[in-house]
Design a protein around this nucleic acid. Structure first.
Length: 950
RNA sequence: GCCAGUGUGGCGGAAUUGGUAGACGCGCCAGACUCAAAAUCUGGUGUUGGUAACAUCGUGUCGGUUCAAGUCCGACCACUGGCACCA
């Protein structure tokens, strides 16, 4: 019906030759900077997901231009890194050539889509004029002591043969290839990102990032507050520092655990009598792959250091020291104080190795409603023993059903001062049940506290309850004395039903011990066995008290820790920016002087990675041998390259001034463009790219090179486009869709419209070719409806309100990324036009203007054919009149008791009384009111009337 | 285990933030045009009952608040993504 290929080509050429989308620095318009993540130009061309993000932000950019902004909407290529290199290796071409080919494909595809990029600002991270400045900025990090080289156990991908940062490891596997990760000691360049942890959290406050991005970043940074505490090693001058978030549990420390790599081991090895065992454990631990460590979480392993002990600084008791790989060297101090009673991991460890467990926090149960504490009554503190008696051959437990109150409990009794807990348990059971042969099975490590008014004794009772599990050996029993018999009945309750039967908190805790077994108590409660902390019933208060005490004594201090690690910045691959550093025996590490930048990659025969963990550059003495820039002696270039995240950590700055050969970006351009106004990208980059980029930018700000601390004002994220089958698109599944084929068969406008219409922009959505056809049909219909146009110079009276509504809706929806409902509103408007005998030039012009950001080609063509005015790209965005969005009538909903019983059309201006009158006289409403009393009538203006009847 | 997100027709998804649940699109059914098909147009389309008017149930499950709940509160279930021995 119309030649969309010709039309689209025509307008793409028009935009190109007119430089329609060029951004200017010397403009008196207000600036607006729109950014999408620049892609990795892989061999397979654009993914069907790319156009979703591109068209979305393209529609924003186009709308902003029409609103009168000077818009910067640039595009470039993130072309260093493994995929490009692997593609080159497979296809036996130089990565540089592979990039050139792929970029050409990507660029053509973007142009075919009609995205309004300013192509004059195109950049590529692999361009020497670009990576010169990446290297230059690396040297700035070095000069400010934020780049350093160190030997470190890193994540080594055995398949890619390359070291990875923490951010590049997923589920213990390589995020790129899924290969196995092992820990490997290597000399690595690092960037001190950890020292920016706080700034990276703080900076988020001034940004308008969507919450899920902020949360992901905050979680990744992983701030925690606690204390560092120093423990002495007995009979030595050595000390052990630990980090803990729970210094309040220090009296419960019964052992310490060091990471197997902890440096103190070497210092005290003479004292350790089983050092060979220690060394063996260290070796085993380092050989374990990341995968094994994750899989083996449940089973704790470790070695006790024989011959040395630590001293608990508060109790002065000697405690054992162990090494175990459940303690990481790279978090905190690499050593922990273990509190098995209140930490699951420490509990498992203590349980496995028979280490004592000392409870220091008791669960505290407040009084039930009917036995609240009484004022002016003395408090009687006593120890009680709660005993669960298990039947000798059934899975049932003996419970008490009290006669005086609705109490369901276990057997309970007070402990006399001259007996042990076990003796109390046996005595009480015999007295209350008559059974003679009872065995104590287990006295639990945990007690609970509670306080209540004991009516039968007339005192407030503070009760410390200990828990005992006993077993009945046989039925042999004595007569129960009458006094006990009168108090309660004895009942046997099945294990599964204990939870339902027992109805007092103190006893429910016993049920938990029986059903789930004993485990660490990680809840809150009252401090016990804890010296100065005893009786404090508030975690925060206990922590503050103990920290103050530790600080006073000089054995500890309040500390903050972060999960964020320094950025591993070395890669042992060919296709990356060479790290511009030279090692000289005399001068140590010396940066390449500015005038020698960029450090270029050499021509090599092969880019294959090496097995020994060195970059291919390390096999080229003719490349790496240089003279030291400082002393002139023979020196050696760094042969590692930068990670592919490097180039993308500042690219938005380069767009501001892409051809500058004097500076990475001019101050004038920085001051004009400022922050990116709106940056959209995938959720998968919320913790990688986005954190690196913010860190990098913040550093540049701190050394005065950029004017703002944060690079991006607003960050949003698009959902993924899934395959037609609803699963993730992947080469192996073969469920991919090629944008080229779609453009050929249905037009770029249809593809663009569908990408926005397919679903909620922020959520994943499955591709549907039928859905795409629907959007094509919509455009076809528009093409037909245009023939109804008649010159008039104003909107059709009939259409005025829907037109105003649509302008409002589309304008707001684009701002809120609700593209699907924006397209829907335009479909509704077009359907309305179609019903008309004719429409005016204004009617048509406003529709195609609103649709222009989504479907720019067909709308420009219609505009030109029908001679409706200037090209849309040079026209202003339509305005609406709030008053005119109103219709004269609306549909009034009539409800009876909240159920819709009728709908009537009424004038917009009728008052509440009239609404009520109409409602109660409505025929169907009357049926539902009849014989009932009207209690009240609720009126929601311009909406509904609800008649409440009884 | 922890964090985040999601759960609405046959499908993708709407619902002005407490006020008509299912907009719009797809699919499907029927009709018109056609020798026929495609394209296009018209009507229908959550469930059950009824020719219909209408009634009934209905937004993952259970409970609550309210004149009124997809929306708010409480408990849970399922799926997706991320993190995971982080002391």
């Amino acid at each position: 019906m119309y030649d969309y290929k010709k039309i689209e080509r025509k307008w793409q050429e028009y935009w190109d030759s007119n430089k329609t989308f060029k951004a200017y620095e010397n403009s008196d318009k207000e600036k607006y900077y729109v950014l999408i993540e620049f892609p990795y130009p892989s061999g397979s061309g654009l993914h069907i997901g790319h156009p979703r993000s591109y068209t979305a932000l393209d529609s924003l950019a186009r709308k902003r231009r029409m609103e009168g902004y000077n818009v910067l909407f640039p595009m470039g290529w993130d072309a260093f890194g493994l995929p490009a290199e692997n593609y080159a290796i497979q296809n036996h071409i130089h990565p540089r050539e592979a990039v050139k080919e792929n970029v050409a494909i990507f660029k053509k595809q973007c142009q075919n889509l009609g995205i309004s990029f300013d192509w004059d600002r195109e950049i590529s991270t692999t361009d020497p004029s670009y990576f010169k400045w990446t290297q230059w900025q690396f040297i700035k990090f070095f000069e400010h002591n934020l780049a350093y080289k160190t030997k470190k156990a890193i994540n080594w991908c055995t398949a890619c043969k390359v070291g990875l940062s923490n951010e590049e490891v997923e589920h213990g596997n390589c995020e790129r290839c899924g290969g196995e990760i092992v820990r490997r000691e290597k000399e690595q360049w690092m960037l001190s990102m950890k020292s920016y942890a706080e700034k990276l959290i703080e900076g988020l406050k001034d940004t308008d990032f969507i919450d899920r991005v902020k949360t992901a970043q905050i979680n990744w940074i992983g701030k925690s507050e606690g204390a560092e505490i120093t423990f002495d090693i007995a009979d030595s001058n050595h000390k052990l520092k630990v980090y803990t978030t729970r210094p309040d549990t220090i009296y419960g420390v019964t052992f310490m655990v060091l990471s197997p790599e902890h440096p103190i081991l070497n210092m005290v090895k003479d004292k350790i009598t089983n050092y060979e065992e220690v060394v063996k454990y260290q070796e085993d631990a380092s050989r374990k792959s990341e995968f094994e460590r994750v899989e083996l979480i449940k089973e704790k392993t470790g070695v006790k250091l024989e011959g040395i002990d630590a001293v608990n600084p508060l109790t002065n008791e000697k405690i054992q020291i162990w090494i175990s790989d459940y303690v990481m060297m790279n978090y905190g101090t690499g050593a922990i104080m273990a509190v098995p009673a209140h930490d699951d991991r420490d509990y498992d460890f203590a349980n496995k190795f028979g280490i004592p467990i000392v409870q220091v926090i008791a669960p505290f149960f407040s009084p039930e409603e009917d036995n609240q504490l009484k004022p002016d009554v003395k408090t009687d503190r006593r120890k009680t023993v709660i005993i669960a008696l298990k039947h000798h051959d059934k899975d049932e437990y003996l419970c008490l059903n009290w006669k005086i109150k609705d109490w369901h409990t276990f057997v309970v009794g007070g402990k006399e001062s001259n007996e042990t807990i076990g003796e109390t348990a046996v005595r009480e059971l015999q007295e209350e049940t008559g059974y003679k042969n009872i065995r104590i099975d287990k006295i639990f490590n945990f007690e609970s506290h509670s306080s209540f008014y004991a009516a039968h004794k007339g005192v407030n009772r503070y009760q410390e309850a200990v828990y005992v599990l006993a077993k009945l050996e046989d039925e042999e029993s004595n007569e129960i004395i009458a006094e006990e018999k009168d108090k309660h009945d004895l009942v046997w309750i099945k294990k599964d039903e204990l939870g339902k039967f027992i109805n007092i908190a103190t006893y429910k805790y016993m049920v938990d011990l029986i059903v789930n077994g004993e485990k660490a108590y990680t809840g809150e409660g009252v401090m016990i066995n804890s010296g100065i902390l005893n009786d404090i019933n508030n975690k925060e208060e206990a922590i503050i008290t103990i920290i103050n005490y530790l600080e006073e004594k000089g054995i500890g201090k309040k500390t903050t820790n972060y999960r964020l690690q320094d950025w591993v910045f070395s890669r042992q691959r060919f296709w990356g920016e060479p790290i511009p550093m030279i090692y000289c025996d005399e001068c140590d590490w010396v940066p390449v002087p500015d005038e020698d930048l960029p450090v270029m990659l050499p021509e090599v025969a092969t880019y294959d990675p090496t097995d020994n963990g060195e970059s291919p550059l390390a096999t080229m003495p003719e490349w790496y041998t240089v003279n030291c820039p400082k002393c002139g002696k023979t020196a050696r270039r760094e042969t590692d390259t930068m990670p592919n995240w490097a180039g993308s950590s500042w690219y938005w700055l380069r767009y501001m001034d892409p051809h500058n050969d004097q500076e990475f970006v001019s101050q004038a351009a920085l001051n004009y463009w400022g922050m990116v106004n709106w940056y959209n990208g995938g959720m998968e980059h919320a913790t990688r790219h986005l954190l690196y980029a913010r860190f990098w930018h913040r550093f540049l700000y701190d050394i005065g090179l950029v004017p703002t601390p944060e690079p991006f004002t607003k960050r949003t994220a698009h959902g993924m486009v899934l395959g037609e089958d609803g699963s993730k698109i992947s080469k192996s599944k073969g469920n991919g869709i090629n944008p080229n084929d779609i453009i050929d068969a249905y037009s770029a406008d249809a593809l663009r419209t569908y990408e926005l219409f397919m679903g909620d922009y922020e959520m994943d959505t499955a591709w549907s070719t039928n859905g795409l056809k629907g959007c094509k049909r919509f455009l076809d219909k528009l093409w037909r409806v245009k023939e109804k146009v008649k010159k008039s110079g104003e909107y059709s009276k009939k259409l005025e309100s829907i037109i105003n509504q649509t302008i409002k809706k589309v304008s707001n929806d684009i701002e809120q990324m609700k593209y699907n409902t924006a397209v829907s509103a335009l479909m509704i408007l077009l359907n309305e036009y179609e019903k008309q005998e004719y429409i005016t030039d204004y009617d048509l012009r406003v529709l195609i203007t609103l649709l222009n950001p989504f479907a720019p080609h067909i709308t420009e063509e219609i505009n030109e054919l029908k001679e409706l005015g200037k090209p849309l790209c040079d026209s202003p965005w339509p305005k609406y009149d709030e008053l005119k969005t109103q219709e004269d009538t609306y549909e009034l909903i009539i409800q009876v008791n909240g159920k819709v019983r009728g709908k009537i059309t009424v004038r917009i201006n009728i008052d509440e009384e009239e609404m009520k009158k109409q409602a109660v006289n409505h025929e169907n409403a009357i049926k539902h009111i009849e014989g009932k009393e009207i209690i009240k009538i609720i009126v929601v203006p311009k909406k509904l009337v609800n008649i409440v009847v009884k």
